[in-house]
Design a protein around this nucleic acid. Structure first.
Lengths: 122, 122
DNA sequence: TGCAATACCTCGTCTGTCAATGTATTAAAA
DNA sequence: TTTTAATACATTGACAGACGAGGTATTGCA
């Protein structure tokens, strides 16, 4: 079952940065890798991917260079800049916080332990 | 430290549905409640909130009625429809899946256990 | 009288996603 | 040989959601 991409909106850049943290790579490979890693749950569309590359290169988070493979279609490789490395780590910490927050907010009566809250208003 | 709302995009409706699962409520109260529950980390903006109400009422997930308070500004209360209840539960399950997926994708070398992957290409 | 809190609502802008479409290369199948 | 599939990159235009900025109205307090 595929996950709605809306639920992952905002994590596109982070996912790519974390892939690049494993080593330089290129669009097509990253696309396939994400697909494989997610067991088919997340398919990052090409338009989304290349838009993200463009955006992140402009922001100075990644840099690109053409591959030197003799045969086959040319590949544009991407590499993390120091700023990109930093961003990846920050994003991971943000994710930990977001996860905790959503776990707290998305409880359903009777399906998760209630939390004692005091709301000032009314 | 406030969380980027982009990271929570896609969960606006779910958060509201889960709040309503605790009992009927109205815009201003929900706004304050989310703020309190998140310890100030998530501030749901009014424009976002009322847009969501409108959207979800149109989708038949919630219904509204005017409060009967004698004094003070009038309140428009919202209540979950059966479809809204269902949606809330589905969304929670989706969240569990998304959380697992992001935990897998957002690992950073040396900061999380590596996962053995076999990628077919190259 | 003025201000803050409560309470609701809308418009226009911005950003990210993606369907659709296009290009080029290589290898294998028909 | 021609066609097909896989690899590989790229753009455009439409659409949806978040939100800054602005608006209205009521109540109570300083």
């Amino acid at each position: 079952m595929a996950l709605s991409s809306d639920l992952l909106r905002g994590y596109t850049d982070t996912v790519i940065l974390c892939q690049l943290a494993e080593g330089d790579s290129y669009g097509y490979a990253i696309s396939k890798q994400i697909n494989a890693l997610s067991g088919g749950q997340l398919e990052m569309k090409e338009a989304t991917l290349y838009t993200a590359f463009r955006r992140m290169e402009q922001m100075g988070l990644i840099a690109s260079y053409w591959g030197t493979e003799g045969a086959g279609a040319r590949r544009r490789y991407y590499t993390l800049t120091p700023a990109g490395h930093e961003k990846a780590q920050e994003d991971i910490e943000q994710w930990q916080q977001t996860r905790r927050l959503l776990d707290r907010l998305l409880s359903f009566p009777g399906r998760a332990p209630k939390i004692e809250i005091t709301v000032e208003n009314e």
